[in-house]
Design a protein around this nucleic acid. Sequence first.
RNA 1: GCGGGUGUGCUGGAACGGUAUACAGAGCAGACUUAAAAUCUGCCGGGAGUAAUCCCUUGUGGGUUCGAAUCCCACCACCCGCACCA
Length: 881
Amino acid sequence: MELYTPSLIEPKWQAYWAEHRTFKTPEDPKLPKKYVLDMFPYPSGAGLHVGHPEGYTATDIYCRYMRATGHAVLHPMGWDAFGLPAEQYAIQTGTHPAVTTQKNIATFKRQIQALGLSYDWDREVDTTDPAYVKWTQWIFLQLFRRGLAYQSEKPVNWCPALGTVLANEEVIDGKSERGSHPVIRLPLRQWMLRITAYADRLADDLALVEWPDSTKTMQEEWIGRSEGAEVKFPLTDGNGELEIFTTRPDTLFGVTFMVIAPEHPYVERLTTHDQKAAVEAYAHQAINRSDLDRRAAKEKTGVFTGGFVINPLTGVQVPVWVADYVMMGYGTGAIMAVPGHDQRDFEFARKFGISVVQVVSPDGSRIPGEMAEAMTEEGVAVNSGAYDGLSTGDFKKQVTEDLEMSGQGKLRVEFRLRDWVFSRQRYWGEPIPIYFPVESDGDPRTGAPHTIRYDLPMPVDEFELPLCLPELEDFNPGEDPAGTLARAVDWRFFQKDGLWYARETNTMPQWAGSCWYYLRFMDPQNPEAAWSQEAAKRWLPVDLYVGGAEHAVLHLLYARFWHKVLLDAGHLNVAEPFAKLVHQGMILGEVEYTGYQFSGNFVSRELIEANPEGGFRHKGTGDEVEVVRVPEDATEKKGGNVVLKADSSIVVDARAFKMSKSRGNVVNPDEVIAAHGADALRLYEMFLGPLEATKPWSTHGIQGVSRFLERCWNLGQKPAWDVRPDGELLRLMHKTLRKVGEDIEALRLNTAISAMMIYLNELAKADPLPREALEMLVRMLHPFAPHLAEELWETLGHTPSLQAVPWPAFDPALCVDEAITVVVQVNGKVRGRVSLPVDASPEQRREAALACPEAQNFLEGKEIVKVVVPANGTLVSIVVK
RNA sequence: GCGGGUGUGCUGGAACGGUAUACAGAGCAGACUUAAAAUCUGCCGGGAGUAAUCCCUUGUGGGUUCGAAUCCCACCACCCGCACCA
């Protein structure tokens, strides 16, 4: 008998599929379509990770099943290939990022192909390919023409030493996280995309898609729609008014002060002479604090401006303060403060001794004396003049109408979502296809004095696209905030009709390419357009999109935004790009056991706490303790804890961690394939648990599926006979067919595999082995372990490919057992079982249950109160007293 | 702090409100073998009992129900997201 040797059969079938274009997307328009998409990877230098094949295998199984059930399947793969690591590597080594990128793509592609994934490789796209960049830039121009791409001078964290803009997370105490270089808040010219113009539709249309609720919620919260009122508070000098936004206009009678952001344009106007020095010092200090610092501050800070405004409803003069808990970027950058009913305002009032007034009550009664805490819930108005007694909801509606009538306010909807900063001062990204006139006395390339008119952006003509990156020797960002490309003067400056122009030197962020790759896949080679109308009509929306939850907001929100813009521009026909979304869970490293030691002696887990400065310490003594790895076989489970075998009073930690290079717990798919084969890796990752769950990898666990595949192989080598399967085996075969099909459709791949294992266990006992029953196993196994299935199919005397064989149908009549076992419960406890024919009536079940001998002991001498016979249940419940 | 999720044998996990622990892994025992590996067979939540059998068990405590891992309430632990958003 031949041995199961994955290393022989897997390359054979991979070559067969490639040669025969087995997974080419069918053109036949009569077939129902399925567009199944994986989030394409960034081809990093580290190569594929076992996390990648998880989602890819799930969609592969789904696609192979869908092809076998008569669907035209579009299942493409490509590369999200612009990005920082290749550029960092270029800075260090001088290797052009394009070279590194192509090398990494080749590795990724080899690894993905070694998994036997059924992609239509004729549709491969690479975001760095000029033929792709051309259309990314074309989409940018669509945005620009529609006024959705604009420039702004937004203050950003600029680090001159590192020559780049840093994210807020990368700035600690005003210094760069790496190297502690000073970071300054610099207003830098940036390209922005007006995603806020689509905020409403991005929130509303979440109702149209079948996505995990958690992801929908995250997007909703990110967009942060809130309805409220804009209210105008006139300045006491009669010279204008301070506009605020509030979601609680019903608390207008409780306003005891106002707060404006340090950046607010009215700061100067409202500040009195006496307060000028204090306000200026505070504002200067606050503006230079990074957002992170501002957030980390526990205590409220602020300064009184000396100025007052008038409450439009009460006519009372209200003092105006400057405080950094109010931000310029949201609403109007100014608030009415109601300390009685807002936690932040309450804290501020407490600190600065401002009075607190109650204007909402749970039941209409007033709290005697000072309020001890802010009451933020809704209720009934008190202390609010003519509005007293109104519920919060009615009050809001009424007062908003009243303010609108008198021109003092109006309904307003605010979003937390901000416009998208779309430019990067980096090399390895798509150039933004914009140029500007240059006022110059000579050749600006040779240093002639010149002024770039950034206020007059001009789009590059479409026929000139793609606008490619210039060649550079040095990829270092340098000190010029205009970006790396500013140094490529021959590329940057050009002459047209005797006038000088300068190209935009910022590039697009990595998100750009991934915003529309699913569209290019529909028509990837089209030289005339980014995609054809026919392709869009045929394939959109994506029916199933599988990828990590880490993209829940950013990528998925950006892509939806571009999609809607392109829809409005008439290039698309469906409102949402991704009809159904599934996040595969993370695969963690192998479980690790860690103990804590102080001067060589183990200390039990419960005596340890995290040290605020990092590391761990003894709770009692405060001594720093050492974290040590403990081998698994030195531990055992006791009670709810894992303890040392040597000393069961020492509790240790047992948990799995995210795979990371630094932890050294990364599992390399190449090694797993070499040891067990791609089919085993595929099957193992699917068998591990539900697709969406976070699961730890276990080296032992792969043995189980490996054995299963081997047993399938061995069975396939045994002589099969042309006898019809019958009896229990036949019924099990049909039940398994049904379950496997249903489970694949619902992506419950772990339970589909266990159903096949059960079927195999039964099939292996059959003697003689019925050919049909064996062939069904091979056909069911095909989406999961395609190499093995193709090989067995050929061994059984069939012509490849198994992919062309339709999915076998099950017979519902054979999916039920011949006899049913009815469980007899007495007072909710199982007391016996009776066997009855399938078609036994409820009355027969009831009688049989009451006659059940084992149950008699529990019925004797008792009064039967009730007998429950559930409609389609295999159970009878007897209640006695 | 707010929002969401998860909690089941030694481990990964299974279970339309209806026989909890399917299917695997690890472990133990046996067969085959000179031996080991591989393979095959059996056992495998805890407790009591010679046994038939009984009692307990799905993070903890309540509730709804003939019946709860599943539904409801409170709490605990862990994970993820957001975090002065007016």
